[in-house]
Every structure is written in structure tokens, then in C-alpha cells.
Design a protein around this nucleic acid. Structure first.
Lengths: 130, 130, 130, 130
DNA sequence: GTGGTCTAGACCACG
DNA sequence: GTGGTCTAGACCACC
């Protein structure tokens, strides 16, 4: 895998969301072993310390668990996993709505804008398909 | 005015949006003189360097213009001002939609979620009012 | 027996105290044969290397003795066994008292705190029983 | 200041408690600026990264706050500071009591032991003074 | 000057 | 082989 990271966001954060997405999409499930620090470091061409930091944070969020000498595992508490998607969506939503409010849009306008934009995007995609 | 800034976002960015909002809301209009660096620095209790940086960026975006010896002014090109709101909204929208896509939501789901969330928020506000 | 170990303390240390407690409580007495490495490893579902390490340390402390070809035995020197409890208690006590001193508590305060806490705990237990 | 660290406990943890103690003893109070990363690193002869880690953790516990470009400060929320001593004492106490229970001591015995030990220590100190 | 992040590489304890 | 910690040194954004 070759990824280029956004230079404005800490790499360890970007890797965190990569892993979270892998879990959300079911690519990784509860109890799965996650790649070792060194493995991921090589795969993503980053420094092991950066990956270490990634997992340290994921652990603090309860998403992975460490078993000494054995490796790290996706938490077996399904509840936590279930929540990841919900939380991430919520974060996006709030930043968006608060931002729009700050620009002076009211509720109806916000819904309208989203509605229209999405529709446009659908058409774009259909054009792509044709 | 006494504001506490979000520690995780550069202050100069936060001040930039403050000024942009003043323009969007009509509080400041094309051709207006903007406060001097020192003035704003005192008003917002920040370091003058920070304000300097703010204007430097606003200038890069064409939103303010410097007239040597006279001060800084909101650009007189109406077109640019008209675009600020649109651009800011667009940025928010794109981050949001791309983020949701990344989480595996499809178009219909996104619209639904926004719709429901907004409705909930409306109710919350009404409760606050009662 | 199925135990889950505290992830932050080396498993071999945790097993050491398990064995020491068995001796303190009289479950195992001087001269008793201790389980073999493989046996204990299966019983506690750990890696044999870990058990090996456990015994290595217990041997260093003079608590078990190895008889080549025969197995390991709780030391027959009663004096050592007698001391285990005393030493373990002493260690706990010292860490505690030194810690409290470091926090600025004086002798009277320390005794008071212990006294009160214990009393509270007694009440809690009584509530549990009711 | 020249300190030798306990090799079995992460240095960043040891420095954390040093700072907490400085706060508990009133040596540092709410709102005080804490030494910069580089400063402390030189003073304690450790690597700046280690100090960085220390503050990162203290920040997560709400004990210090970071102001970008200005430095770090002891939190101004008095409540948090008030709690540090209580929490640290509680931790010590619990480890102690649980440990003693594990060794088979009952409540009365624990209180007695503490009582006697403390008295002994008092005498020792008096001897030192004479 | 301050903190935040990253790379590079090392050592250790653990299983 | 695995993670945890530490040192060394660098670059950057921010104030």
C-alpha cells in the first residue's frame, strides 16, 4: 500500500482513522490481531514510533487492546466498535452544521443545500457512468 | 470583546473567520477600513504578530488590500466578497460529504441523517425557548 | 482455573504471588512438590517460558528448590517460609508509608486515614451482606 | 537538581509525580507557568521527548494546560488541583489494603500493623534527633 | 522562545 | 517476535 499523507494533519491521526475505517467496514472485526508496530511501519513507510503513537491513542479510546508479548487486538467489546461509526459520523455532522450556522444559514437552508448538492453529485456520478 | 480561542486551531485562522463573518453579515462592507494591527491586537488581546499573520493570509485570499501609509481595506471587488460565503459553505459541505462517504454512507443515507439531525436540533431549540 | 491477568504487571510476577499465597495460606507446605512447568503452563494457560521465569525468580528468593530429575519443591527451610508473609507485608507497608510521607502527611494523619478507610470498608462489606 | 530515577518505572511517570508533588505542596499554584520542555529536560538531564511525554499525560489528566507559543500552565481549575492529593493518597491506600487482604490479613490486623509500625517509626525519628 | 510532530535507532522486558 | 521506553536530533507552526 502506498499512501500520501496530508501534511497538515498528524500522521498518527491519519493512521488512526484508517484503522477505524477498516473496522467500520468490517475489514477487521472484534478480536482480530492488528498488524504489529514494525509491520505497519514498514507497510506505511513511517517510523515505528509514529505507529506506536497511533496505537497508544487507539488503546486509550478502547479500540485496541494490548497483550504483552503477543501483539495488539481489536477490542472484543462489540459495543465500542458499534460506536465508532456513530461517533465519527456525529463529529462530521456537528462540525458541518455548526460551521453553516456560523455562516448565517438557518436550518431549512442547510437541508436544502445538502439536498441539492447531493443531487448534483448523483448526476455527476451518472455522467461518469454513461 | 473578550474571546477565548480554541487551543487546537491557530488563532490567526480563528481571527480570519471572525473577520470573514463580519463581512458576510454585512457588518463590514467593501471598501471599509479594517482595524489596524495594533488596534485589533489590543481588542482581541493577542500578540500583534498573530494579527499580522491574519491579514497576510486575508490579503493572499484577496479579501483585504493594503494601501501603504493609509491602512488596510476590505477589497472593493464585490465579486470576491460575494464568493466568500459560497466558498466557506462549499468547503464545509465537501469535508462533510467526503467524510461520510469514507464512512460508507451513500447519498440517501447522508441526506436522511442531515434531515433528521436538523429536525432534532430544531426541537431542542424550541424546548430551550419554552 | 481460569484467571485473567492484569495487563500492566508481568504475568510471571502475578504467578509468583499466587504461589506465595498458596504457601502463606498453608495450601502448600515446606517440602511439597510444586507443579511442573508444563503442568502449570496448561493450568494457567500461559506460555511455559513464563512459568520458567516464575520459578527462576522464586528460586532466587529461596522459596523453591530444584532437584535435578525429580522436580521442584517448596524449600524445606521453614525459616524462609515464615518470612515470606512478613516480608510481603513489610514491602506493602513501606511503599505505602513512604508514599504518604511524600504527599506531606504526618504520622497521625496516616494512622487516621487508614483507620477511617478501614472502617468505611467494613461498613461497605456489611451492606453487601445484608 | 540531580535526581536518579528508579530504572523500573518509566521516567516520564516519575517526573509526573514530581510535578504533582510540587503542586500539592504549594510549591506551584494554579495558573503558574510550568518550566518549558527544553528547560526541564536540561534541568533533569533527560531527553526533551521524555518531558514532552510527561506533559502530554499531565495535560490529559487536566493538570496542566497548553497555550500555544506561550508555554504550559498549571490548570486554573482549582477543583482539579484539590483532587490530586486525594487521588494519590487513595491510590496508595488501595494498593496497600488490597495487598494486605491478599496476604490474608483482616481489617483489625491491618490497622494494628499500621499503628505499630508508625509508632516504631516515631521512636526511630526521636532517636535520630537525640 | 514555545510546543507538536516525526525520523532514526537503541535497549529492555515479556511471552 | 512483540510492545514500552528512551535518546538524539530535526523541522514546523505558533506567538
Amino acid at each position: 500500500m502506498s499512501i500520501e499523507f496530508d501534511t497538515n494533519i498528524p500522521i498518527y491521526i491519519q493512521i488512526m482513522t484508517i484503522i477505524k475505517k477498516r473496522i467500520i467496514t468490517g475489514e477487521m472485526v472484534a478480536g482480530d490481531k492488528v498488524p504489529s508496530v514494525r509491520e505497519l511501519a514498514t507497510e506505511l513507510k513511517t517510523n515505528p514510533n509514529t505507529i506506536q503513537r497511533t496505537f497508544q491513542e487507539l488503546e486509550r479510546e478502547g479500540i485496541v487492546e494490548t497483550k504483552r508479548g503477543l501483539g495488539r487486538y481489536v477490542t472484543s467489546e462489540e459495543a465500542i466498535i458499534m460506536n465508532i461509526k456513530k461517533e465519527m459520523a456525529n463529529d462530521l455532522l456537528n462540525t458541518f452544521i455548526e460551521g453553516m450556522r456560523g455562516l448565517g444559514f438557518n436550518n431549512n437552508e442547510i437541508v436544502d443545500i445538502v439536498d441539492n448538492t447531493i443531487k448534483e453529485k448523483v448526476e455527476e456520478q451518472q455522467e461518469d457512468v454513461r
